[in-house]
Structure formats: C-alpha cells, structure tokens
Computed example of a mutant assay.
Amino acid sequence: MALSYKARRRWALVILLIGLPLYIILAVNILNRIERPSIFVELLVYVALGVIWALPFKFVFKGVGQADPDQRD
C-alpha cells in the first residue's frame, strides 16, 4: 500500500529528526571502536555511510518537497 503525501511528509520528518541523528551516533561509535584508519579511508567510509543511509528511504523522500498532489486548486 502506497503512503499518502501527508504520511510521507511525516515519516520524512521523523526519519530526519530522530533516525538520522541515531544513525550518525551509531556510525561514529562503531568507527571509534576499531583502530583509526588513515584520514582518507575514514573520509571515504563517512561519505559512503552518508549516502547509504538514504537509499532504503528513497520512496519516503521522493516528491516531499513538491506541492501536495492530492490538494485541489
């Protein structure tokens, strides 16, 4: 079942305000537990993790910045 526009907006807000900070904390803590790699490897890991977090939520964020398609003029 597809999410409505309002539901997608709400879920996007929850993901950005709660899920993303938790993901950042988790990623930093995991990388701090291993031996620190060179700065370039660490940068590549953080860039990759920064892109990977959004892929599962692509359907939620798609079209959220647009006008409500269900709203009548």
Rank of each mutant, 00 (worst) to 15 (best):
A7S: 10
F61N: 04
F61T: 01
Q66L: 11
I52P: 00
M1I: 03
L55M: 10
K58E: 07
V41L: 11
L13K: 15
P21G: 10
Q66S: 11
A54N: 07
P56I: 07
P37T: 05
D70Y: 06
A7G: 01
R72E: 11
W11C: 11
N32V: 07
V60G: 01
Q66V: 04
D68Y: 02
G19H: 06
Q71T: 05
Q71C: 00
Y46T: 00
E42T: 03
R33L: 14
L17D: 03
S4M: 04
P37C: 06
F61V: 01
L3A: 02
I18L: 15
I30R: 06
S38A: 09
S4D: 08
P21I: 09
A48M: 05
L17G: 10
L31S: 08
V41A: 11
V41S: 02
G63H: 05
R33Y: 09
L13N: 13
P37S: 04
G19E: 01
K58H: 08
F61I: 04
V47T: 08
R8A: 02
D68H: 03
I34A: 14
Q71F: 02
E35T: 06
K58L: 09
S4E: 08
S38Y: 04
G19N: 04
Y23P: 00
W53Q: 03
Y23R: 06
A67F: 02
K6G: 12
L22M: 14
